[in-house]
């Protein structure tokens, strides 16, 4: 039997002081996030922000010719819909559910009001934005400087950190699209990792068998991104809710 879902599975919501959390709670609506569902599209208006709990959302940059590259991945450590409170009315990218699960959504108007009051939620969301900026910049440089295999390791680890399982549902083609590389490149890289006993790949399911070894192979970009989001939350829990 599955454990009941609660908004506190999202780390940002969990880090809110009790009073702020209670105020938001009636507005948080549990939503299944299905694989491939676009939470927002380039240029489209956003009616909600999403706090993933058991799902992962990819932020993609879409080029004119239709090719795409993942610029960040958001899971239970963050939220999707930065543009809403940053005041950019639309986004340039697209947010697509990369791993199905659940999340909680909040209406744009509620979020804007809360953010405008400048309390703990505003503080948390801004700090998360900083972590997201670091992730995006690191992804940019990783795209440029590191091998497909290293990038695949980074992508797998970042995804795993945002899930409670060791298994990902994913085709190589989709990974190739996320990473913005040719499928052959992903096949080759995944082949190496499988031969080394790090992962097992079969029929659209990737199981991570040896996480420490995967961490040994990954480029530094993974650690940079992880450190940033860890620091965000550890400091926040200390500052925002010293009693917990």
């Amino acid at each position: 039997m599955h454990a009941p879902h609660t908004p506190k599975q999202n780390h940002l919501l969990a880090a809110l002081p009790a009073a702020d959390y209670e105020r938001l709670l009636p507005h948080l609506e549990q939503t299944p996030l299905e694989l491939g569902w676009a939470l927002y599209e380039s240029g489209g208006e956003q009616g909600h922000v999403y706090f993933p709990t058991t799902s992962i959302v990819s932020l993609l940059c879409i080029m004119q010719d239709g090719s795409s590259a993942e610029i960040a991945v958001v899971g239970n450590e963050g939220l999707v819909g930065i543009a809403l409170f940053m005041g950019g009315e639309s986004t340039t990218g697209r947010a697509v559910v990369q791993s199905a699960g659940y999340g909680y959504r909040l209406r744009a108007s509620v979020l804007k009001t809360e953010f405008g009051q400048g309390g703990a939620l505003q503080h948390l969301l801004l700090r998360y934005t900083q972590a997201l900026i670091t992730q995006m910049a690191q992804t940019a440089v990783c795209n440029r400087r590191h091998s497909v295999e290293q990038q695949l390791c980074r992508w797998l680890l970042l995804s795993l950190d945002r899930l409670s399982s060791i298994e990902l549902t994913m085709t190589q083609e989709l990974i190739a699209n996320m990473l913005g590389v040719r499928r052959e490149g992903v096949t080759e890289a995944a082949g190496h990792l499988q031969a080394a006993g790090l992962i097992h790949y079969s029929r659209g399911k990737i199981t991570v068998l040896d996480r420490p070894k995967l961490e040994a192979r990954v480029c530094e970009c993974y650690a940079v991104v992880k450190r940033e989001s860890d620091r965000l939350l550890s400091r926040e829990t200390a500052i925002v809710d010293p009693l917990s």
């Binding site: 590259a69 940053m86 005041g87 340039t92 934005t129």
Partner: peptide
């Protein structure tokens, strides 16, 4: 608002570097 446009610049750079 400016931070948000700067983020768009970073995102676009990430994709641009790739393609």
């Amino acid at each position: 608002r400016y931070t948000h446009t700067l983020m768009a610049q970073i995102a676009q750079t990430a994709a641009c570097n790739r393609f």
